[in-house]
Each structure stands twice: as structure tokens, then as C-alpha cells.
């Protein structure tokens, strides 16, 4: 059960770490002046009254970046066990890793050639 003991530490840490910022924010909530008025609590956009909705439709480009990142993220996650075991693997394993990375580099080159990686 040693493993769980380590994670109990992480669990306590998880509970405790939000308390760190909550304490000063809470203290500030007690100490600070609370004189909000309508003008103060307006959205700050350089003194100009805000026009239209903030939550509007964004460009699809962000989504493409997110998607390419997701693919790479999954790839890296699969490479971690390979890297951990690498010190005791043979040449076949190196070739397997190489092929794995090459297949994904293909996709990167495709994205590159299609020009979706250029920020417009």
C-alpha cells in the first residue's frame, strides 16, 4: 500500500493548495473597502462603453491549434513509457519508436504544407 501512501500526500496537497490563495483573498475580503457602484463594476474596455456581446464566435484557427496539440499530447503520453523503458530495450524497440514518431511527423508535415500552422 506504499503507493497509496504517496498519493495520500498528493491528496492532502490537493486539498491544501487552494487554501493558500483562498486565505489572502479571504483576508482581503474582510479588510478591503466595499464601495462598488454601477460605474465601477462596468466592463473595463478603455473607458469606452462596451459594445455587443463578448462571447462571440471565434475563428476556427484556434480550434485547429487545439486539435494538433491534442494529437501531439496523446503521442507524447504514449512515448513516455517507451522513454522510461528505453534503457533496457533493444534495437527493435528503437525502430518501433522511430516509426511511431515518423508516422506523426507525417501529419505535422502535412499541416505544415497545407499552411494551417501559420498564424493569420
Amino acid at each position: 500500500m506504499d503507493v497509496l501512501n504517496e498519493w495520500a500526500f498528493i491528496g492532502v496537497f490537493l486539498v491544501l493548495s487552494p487554501i493558500l490563495p483562498i486565505l489572502p483573498i479571504g483576508a482581503a475580503w474582510l479588510l478591503r473597502p466595499k464601495r462598488a457602484n454601477v460605474l465601477k463594476s462596468q466592463t473595463y474596455e478603455c473607458g469606452v462603453e462596451t459594445v455587443g456581446d463578448t462571447w462571440v464566435q471565434f475563428r476556427v484557427q484556434y480550434y485547429i491549434y487545439g486539435l494538433i496539440f491534442l494529437v501531439f499530447d496523446v503521442e507524447m503520453v504514449l512515448l513516455f513509457p517507451w522513454a522510461v523503458a528505453y534503457h533496457k530495450l533493444d534495437f527493435f524497440a528503437f525502430a518501433a519508436g522511430l516509426l511511431f514518431i515518423f508516422l506523426l511527423t507525417d501529419a505535422l508535415i502535412y499541416a505544415w504544407r497545407k499552411g494551417v500552422l501559420v498564424w493569420r
Binding site: 475563428r59 476556427v60 484557427q61 480550434y63 485547429i64 486539435l67 494538433i68 494529437v71 496523446v74 503521442e75 504514449l78 516509426l99 511511431f100 514518431i101 508516422l103 506523426l104 507525417d106 501529419a107 502535412y110 499541416a111 497545407k114 494551417v116
Partner: peptide
């Protein structure tokens, strides 16, 4: 790996047209 590649290329094709 092949699946991920396919997913990425497919997504790029679809999203690029929209863009």
C-alpha cells in the same frame, strides 16, 4: 500512431475549408 495521424489530417481538411 496511424490513427492519430489520420485524425489530425482529417481534422485539418475539414477545418481548413471552414477557415
Amino acid at each position: 500512431s496511424l490513427l492519430l495521424t489520420g485524425a489530425m489530417i482529417g481534422a485539418i481538411v475539414i477545418a481548413r475549408d471552414a477557415d
